[in-house]
Design a protein around this nucleic acid. Structure first.
Lengths: 129, 129
DNA sequence: CTGGTTGCAAACTCTTTGCAATCCT
DNA sequence: AGGATTGCAAAGAGTTTGCAACCAG
């Protein structure tokens, strides 16, 4: 929390009450969430403010976008470990996947990769029972 | 072309002039295209018809969705080889990437993967010069 | 104080649908 | 002929912005 608000201030932005609440929500849930999901966790804040704050957080690297094949953009707090996700299309649970083959792709193709989507939807072991 | 219209008819749908034109466009370009890009290649067809036809093509498996991190949904003709893409954010060229680690992910996680996004954006070797 | 930020409302853009006319088979 | 399909227009949904009031530093 401390470091989150610090990042914000260091980037030259104010730590306002709405932003503080947003950071708490993101920290509490700690899974990729859509703007609507975030907003429903703190509906006292106007949607436009949620929108602008999350957009700002994304710009200064506090949160990251996650793009599943369902086309809903989700956001989660950046943590230091690069990872991707598995979304169960039955129960909706999102699990982290500590695998990425970015550097292999770069070597293979000679591209400099700036963005990538590497997310999976499926049925989790539990829902298969 | 022949097999494309056959798939359509076999699925119980009519091969109309607009659909025929669409199939030609998809075949000619043969890269993932947004609905707008497709429509601009055949602007005599109403956008709503492009939308509905591509949606239908997708449902019967004639085309597949491609989701890059730029959040624009693109479509391309399904071909028998499963592949993913590299989009150069400078020149816009899209290249195929014949790599996928789907089965590895399934083994690793015990999920049954139903959808996945596995697309890359970056700078291509040519644009780096 | 003072410029950044918020909430409200409205504008935009993109996606989707209803319906009468038209087209395949 | 008759149901599927099209084009037009408009409805929906989600995203983005202008602006006056407000607040953190």
């Amino acid at each position: 929390m401390q470091n989150l608000s610090l990042t914000l201030k260091k980037s030259g932005y104010k730590l306002t009450t709405p932003r503080n609440i947003l950071l708490k929500v993101l920290k509490k849930i700690n899974k990729p969430m859509t703007l609507n999901e975030i907003h429903s966790e703190c509906s006292t804040i106007d949607f436009a403010s949620v929108y602008r704050s999350i957009k700002l957080f994304n710009e200064i690297g506090l949160v990251e976008e996650v793009n599943f094949a369902d086309k809903k953009i989700r956001y989660e707090l950046s943590n230091n470990s690069h990872h991707h996700h598995l979304l169960c299309s039955k129960c909706g649970e999102i699990k982290e996947l500590p695998v990425c083959i970015l550097s292999e792709i770069e070597k293979l193709t000679n591209y400099t990769i700036t963005k990538h989507t590497f997310e999976f939807m499926g049925i989790c072991p539990n829902c298969k029972k």
